[in-house]
Simulated assay, not measured.
Amino acid sequence: MIKEHVVQIIVDYHEAPSGLIDELSEYEYETKTYHLTTNVETTRLEIGDIICSDRVGIERKSVDDFINTIINHERDLAGQMADMTRAYKSPQVILEGETVFGIRGVHPEALRALKAMITVNFGIPIIPTMSVEETAAQVVTIARREQFRDKRKISIPHTKRSTMTMPQMQRYVVSSIGGGVGGTKAERLLKHFRSVRKVMNASIDELCGVEGIQKTTAEKIHKVIRSEYKA
């Protein structure tokens, strides 16, 4: 006998223009053992765009969103990621689109630095998808795994958005790089380079030009930012 699996998903109503809510609502498939459908609740989420369980929250970023973050709102992303780690035990980022490289003249190193901040500084995995249809399929897979395999409930976290000031968020990001960078050195790096992105893009020699940053520390910072994430 085929079992009915109804996957519960909570989505922020701001996702409606992207088509994601429609894709999730219409998602359905059948295997030899079960028939899967979805029950999608739309609401205003304080943190994140999609909730799959009491521990999994997802921030969805289109390629354009990601590029705009670098060009116009780089600093906002650090606050979003900090909020995600506070609100969800297993936060995720879905990056939707064919490629982020070679678009609108943004240097590839800036894109890699931003990805490094998300994965290394905050420990949040980035799941790439090619389209809104693939995003919906990935979300349903995560939600089904959480709710039917791991028997997790679904709930909206009570965590509120961070009230950290912009300088506090910037210091938090830089001080989390590792390699011996604490609050004092993070402050010096930011005063010298004037932005998180410029710290991330700095060469070893440029890092060594900052008071208190020795070559060994600079090499560690450089390695952490540019190393591929391997969980």
Rank of each mutant, 00 (worst) to 15 (best):
V40I: 03
E30G: 00
I51A: 05
K185C: 08
S53C: 09
I213Q: 08
H73M: 08
V181S: 06
A137H: 11
T33V: 15
K198Q: 03
V174S: 02
V11A: 07
I142Y: 09
R161E: 15
T33G: 13
K32Q: 11
E4C: 07
T129L: 13
L114Q: 15
L114D: 02
E46I: 06
T184M: 14
K230V: 15
P125D: 03
L36M: 14
Q80G: 01
N72R: 11
V199T: 05
H158M: 10
A137G: 09
D54R: 05
P128S: 11
I58N: 03
G19T: 08
E26N: 09
C208V: 06
I124D: 02
T129Y: 13
V56Q: 05
T33Y: 15
H14N: 12
S175P: 01
R161M: 14
R75M: 07
A16C: 10
V181E: 09
I225V: 06
P91L: 07
V93Q: 01
I204W: 14
G179H: 06
R44T: 03
D22N: 08
V132K: 02
L77G: 12
M1P: 15
Y88E: 04
K185Q: 13
V181R: 05
G178L: 07
S53D: 10
R144P: 04
I126A: 00
H158G: 13
E23D: 12
D150K: 12
V196M: 11
R44L: 04
R55T: 15
E59A: 12
Q147M: 10
G178S: 08
V6D: 03
I2M: 08
V174K: 01
T43L: 05
K151Y: 03
H222M: 07
I118F: 07
T165Q: 04
N39G: 08
F101V: 05
T85A: 10
I142A: 10
A231H: 13
E23P: 07
I50G: 01
G212C: 04
V196D: 01
I2V: 11
K191R: 10
R188E: 00
R145C: 07
R171I: 09
I213F: 10
P91N: 06
K3D: 11
V120G: 02
H192N: 00
E59S: 11
S62F: 05
G97N: 04
A137Y: 04
E133T: 15
H158V: 12
G178P: 07
K32S: 10
G178F: 05
S203V: 08
Q214N: 13
E219R: 00
V210F: 01
I71Y: 10
E96T: 15
H192S: 05
N201K: 10
V181A: 02
Y27C: 06
R226D: 05
S62Y: 03
M164G: 02
I221M: 09
R171Y: 08
L24K: 07
H192D: 01
A231Q: 12
T42V: 07
I156F: 01
T38W: 05
M166R: 15
V174Q: 05
M84R: 00
I10A: 00
V173T: 09
Y13M: 06
V106T: 10
E23K: 14
M84E: 04
